[in-house]
Deep mutational scan, measured.
Amino acid sequence: TYYTVKSGDTLNKIAAQYGVSVANLRSWNGISGDLIFVGQKLIVKKG
């Protein structure tokens, strides 16, 4: 599943929405910090 980042989104918010961990979101998307951008597509695997 792909999720497109919207204004106001955070990794924590997206992780909670999908029932996954922030660590997994980072791993699946090659993100090291907490910086995400509006319009960015993130890979999300269902929890």
Score class of each variant (00 low, 15 high):
Asp34Ile: 06
Thr10Phe: 04
Ser7Pro: 13
Gly19Thr: 07
Asn29Gln: 01
Ala15Trp: 01
Ala16Lys: 13
Trp28Phe: 05
Ser32Gly: 10
Asn24Tyr: 08
Ile36Cys: 04
Thr1Trp: 13
Lys45Gln: 14
Asn12Tyr: 14
Arg26Pro: 00
Trp28Asp: 05
Val5Ala: 05
Lys41Asp: 09
Asn29Ile: 01
Val38Tyr: 06
Gly39Cys: 05
Leu42Asn: 00
Lys13Ile: 11
Ile31Lys: 02
Asp9Ile: 01
Val38Thr: 09
Thr4Leu: 07
Lys6Ser: 11
Leu25His: 00
Asp9His: 01
Leu42Tyr: 02
Thr1Met: 15
Leu25Ile: 11
Val22Asp: 05
Val44Glu: 00
Trp28Val: 04
Gly8Tyr: 05
Leu42Cys: 02
Lys13Trp: 14
Ser7Lys: 11
Ile36Asn: 02
Asp9Ser: 02
Gly30Lys: 10
Tyr2Pro: 05
Leu35Lys: 12
Ala23Gly: 11
Lys45Cys: 06
Val44Gln: 01
Gln40Ser: 06
Ala23Gln: 12
Ile36Phe: 06
Trp28His: 03
Lys6Pro: 01
Ser21Thr: 14
Lys46Glu: 15
Gly33Gln: 09
Gly19Met: 10
Gly30Asn: 13
Thr4Asn: 07
Gln17Met: 12
Asp9Asn: 02
Asp34Leu: 06
Ser27Ile: 12
Ala23Asn: 10
Trp28Tyr: 05
Thr1His: 14
Tyr2Trp: 13
Ala23Thr: 12
Gly33Pro: 03
Gln17Leu: 15
Thr1Tyr: 13
Gly33Ser: 09
Val38Lys: 07
Ile36Val: 09
Ser27Asn: 11
Gln17Val: 11
Leu42Asp: 00
Lys45Trp: 15
Gly8Arg: 04
Ser27Tyr: 14
Asn24Arg: 08
Ala16Asn: 12
Ala23His: 13
Thr4Ala: 06
Gln17Ala: 11
Tyr18Gln: 08
Ile36Thr: 04
Ile36Ala: 04
Ser27His: 15
Asn12Ala: 13
Lys13Asn: 12
Gly19Ala: 10
Lys6Glu: 13
Val44Cys: 05
Lys41Leu: 15
Gly39Thr: 04
Val5Trp: 05
Ala23Val: 10
Ile43Leu: 14
Leu42Trp: 01
Lys45Pro: 07
Leu42Gln: 00
Lys6Met: 12
Ser21Leu: 07
Tyr3Val: 07
Gly8Thr: 06
Tyr3Phe: 04
Val22Trp: 02
Val38Glu: 14
Val44Ala: 04
Lys45Leu: 15
Ser32His: 15
Ser21Asn: 08
Gly30Gln: 11
Leu35Ser: 12
Lys13Gln: 13
Tyr2Asn: 07
Ala16Arg: 11
Gln40Tyr: 04
Ser32Gln: 14
Ser21Phe: 04
Ala23Met: 09
Leu42Ser: 00
Gly19Lys: 10
Ile31Pro: 02
Thr1Lys: 10
Phe37Leu: 11
Thr4Glu: 13
Leu25Gly: 00
Ala16Gln: 12
Lys6Thr: 11
Ser32Asp: 12
Gly30His: 14
Gln40Glu: 08
Gly30Trp: 07
Val38Ser: 08
Lys46Met: 15
Lys45Ala: 14
Asn24Ile: 10
Lys13Glu: 15
Leu42Gly: 00
Phe37Trp: 11
Gly47Cys: 09
Asp9Glu: 04
Ser7Trp: 10
Ser32Glu: 12
Arg26Cys: 08
Asp9Lys: 01
Ala15Phe: 01
Asn24Gln: 14
Val22Glu: 10
Asn24Thr: 12
Ser7Gln: 14
Leu11His: 01
Gly30Met: 11
Tyr3Thr: 04
Ile43Arg: 08
Ile14Gly: 00
Leu25Cys: 02
Ala16Phe: 12
Lys41Gly: 07
Gly30Arg: 08
Leu25Arg: 00
Ile14Met: 03
Asn12Ser: 14
Gln17Asp: 15
Thr10Asn: 08
Ile31Met: 10
Gln17Arg: 10
Leu35Pro: 07
Asp9Phe: 01
Leu35Glu: 15
Thr10Ser: 10
Lys6Leu: 11
Tyr18Cys: 04
Leu35Ala: 11
Val20Lys: 03
Ile43Met: 12
Ser21Trp: 04
Asp9Gly: 01
Gly39Glu: 05
Ser27Val: 11
Asp34Cys: 10
Lys45Ser: 15
Trp28Met: 08
Arg26Asp: 02
Leu25Val: 06
Val20Met: 06
Ile31Cys: 04
Lys46Asp: 15
Lys6Tyr: 05
Gly33Asn: 10
Ser7Ala: 14
Gly47Arg: 09
Phe37Pro: 04
Ser7Tyr: 13
Gly39Asn: 07
Gly30Leu: 10
Tyr2Cys: 10
Gly8Asn: 07
Leu42Val: 08
Val20Thr: 12
Tyr2Ala: 07
Asp9Ala: 02
Val22His: 04
Ser7Thr: 13
Ser27Ala: 11
Leu25Ser: 00
Lys45Thr: 13
Trp28Lys: 02
Gly33Met: 08
Ser32Cys: 08
Ser32Thr: 15
Ile43Val: 11
Val44Thr: 07
Gly39Met: 04
Asn24Phe: 08
Ser32Ala: 14
Asn29Cys: 01
Tyr18Lys: 05
Ser32Met: 14
